[in-house]
Simulated scan of single mutants.
Amino acid sequence: MSKNKIHALADVQSSDIGNDTYVWQFTVILSNAKIGDNCNINCNCFIENDVIIGNNVTIKSGVQIWDGVRIEDNVFVGPNVTFTNDLIPRSKVYPKEFKQTILKTGSSIGANSTIVAGIEIGEMAFVGAGSVLTKSIAPYTVWYGNPAIQRGFITEESILLDMNLKDKNTGERYYLEGFKPVKK
């Protein structure tokens, strides 16, 4: 039996909500959406039908998650992040299928960012507040701006590194193993 906490003023039509997931007031979740365990869906959010959200995900206030968005485990989506799912939107004209957007495990999207349809945000990647992300980004990279460009890297411990893989605070050097920055 699910032990989720759904506020009385939320409209949750889906029965596929994981244990210990909290849904705040004035949020609408349509019937086919799938949401994992231990998530926090803040107030004033809208989650469409063809959406899959993993475990331990935080969705802050004012976020609409449209058909085709896939959010893996441990992802943070900041307040008022905007997702799109149609590259050529027209009133009353619908594509055969919506573009799929994937947020990989541990990624973070800053407040007021716009995520253009059909891209993948790599594992642990970090998108700064107010960014417009127009293309897929690699794991452990840091992006911000309009349009967003790569500004550095981020470690498992959330240490920000510059483009030369140096810690911005200590100057300590890291090295890439695959996509992952590590100390040697």
Rank of each mutant, 00 (worst) to 15 (best):
N146V: 14
E123R: 04
I159Y: 11
N85Q: 15
I109M: 15
I159F: 12
K168R: 14
N169W: 08
E156R: 13
A125P: 00
L103G: 07
L176Q: 01
I119W: 07
D167H: 00
R173V: 13
K92L: 13
A117M: 04
I109N: 11
Y140R: 00
L103N: 10
S107A: 06
D167L: 03
P89C: 10
T82H: 15
N112L: 12
T114D: 10
L133N: 08
A117Y: 00
E123I: 00
T114G: 09
G106P: 02
G130I: 05
S113C: 11
E156H: 13
Q150M: 15
E172N: 07
K92M: 13
D167R: 01
A117I: 01
M163T: 02
S136Y: 09
L161S: 07
Y175P: 04
I154Q: 11
N146P: 11
V93G: 07
Q100F: 08
A125H: 00
M124V: 07
A117S: 04
I154R: 14
I115A: 09
A125W: 02
K135T: 06
D86T: 08
N146C: 15
G122N: 00
L133A: 08
A148W: 06
K99W: 01
L160D: 04
L165N: 04
P95E: 09
V142M: 09
G122E: 05
I115Y: 06
